[in-house]
Amino acid sequence: MAIAILIAALAGATVALFFQPRWWFPDAISAHAKAYDAHFLFTLCVIGAIFVFAQGLLTWVILRYRDRGQAPSAHEGNNTLELVWTSATAVVFLGLAFAGQGIWAGIHLDAPAANALRVEVLAKQFAWSYRYPGPDGAFGRVDTRQIDDASGNPFGIDAKDPAGRDDITGAILRVPAGRQVELLLKSRDVIHNFFVRELRLKQDVVPGITIPLRFTADTPGSYEVPCSELCGLGHHQMRSSLVVMAPADFDAWLQEAQQKAAQP
C-alpha cells in the first residue's frame, strides 16, 4: 500500500540524513565535550534502533494486514505482553536517564579546581563584557551608579576600591588552554544565555543571581558565542567570542593587559 511505502521511505530518508557529515556538531574542544559526543552517539544509537524498529513494524503491519478479505482476529489484549513491553521500555528509558547523569554531574556538581581562572561575565542588551581580577586575584567592588558603558566601565567597578584598580575588562573572553576556567555569569537587565558550541555548554544568565560555569578548553582557537535565550530585538546580534590561547600566549596577553590597566 502507498502509505506503507511512504512511511518506510520517509523513515529511511530520515535515518540516511544522519549519515551526512555536513550538518553536525563542531569539533569538541574539551574533555567534557568529547564525553558529551560519546554519550550522544550512544543515545543516538539507542533511539535510532527504536525508531527503525517502530517505523519498520508499523510499515510491516500495514502491508501484512491490508484488506485482502481476511477475517480480523479477535484478540483484544494480553496482559503478559503489556507487562513485557512496559518493563522493557522502562528499563531502556530509565537506563538512558541514569547513564546520562555523568556528563551533567561533571559540569555542575564537581568541585572547582584550586587553580581555576575566575572570570566574571556580564550580559546586557545586547553585548557581553568580561572581567578578570588582575594580579591581586580579587574582583573589585561594584557600584551600579558608576556603570558607564561609554568610558569602558560596564561593570561599574568602584573607583575607590583598590582591589578594582587592576581589574581587566574586555569584550572578548580569552582563556588559556588546559587550565580550568570558572565563569561567573551575571546579567544587568533580562535573561541571556551563554553558549559555546565547541564546549557543548549552555547556561542561562539570569539577572539577580550569579551562576557559575566551569570548563577546561584544550584546543586553541577562536569560537563564537551566540546568545541563546530570547532577550529582545537585538537577540540575534548579541555575539561574542571565546578565544582559547596557548598558556604562554595567554600569560603574555594578561601581562600586557595588566600593564595597560595599571596606567592611569
Binding site: I3, I7, L10, A11, T14, F25, Y36, H39, F40, T43, L44, V46, I47, I50, F51, A54, Q55, L58, I62, F93, L96, A97, G100, Q101, G102, I103, W104, G106, I107, R197, R200, L201, K202, Q203, S228
Partner: peptide
Amino acid sequence: LGFVSLFITGGITGLVLGQPGLDVYFH
C-alpha cells in the same frame, strides 16, 4: 497511521532532550 508514525518520530527525540547533560547543547 500518519499520527502513529509522527508520534514515534517526534517523541523519540524527547529521549535526547530529557537528559539534562545532552539538553544543554540542543536547548
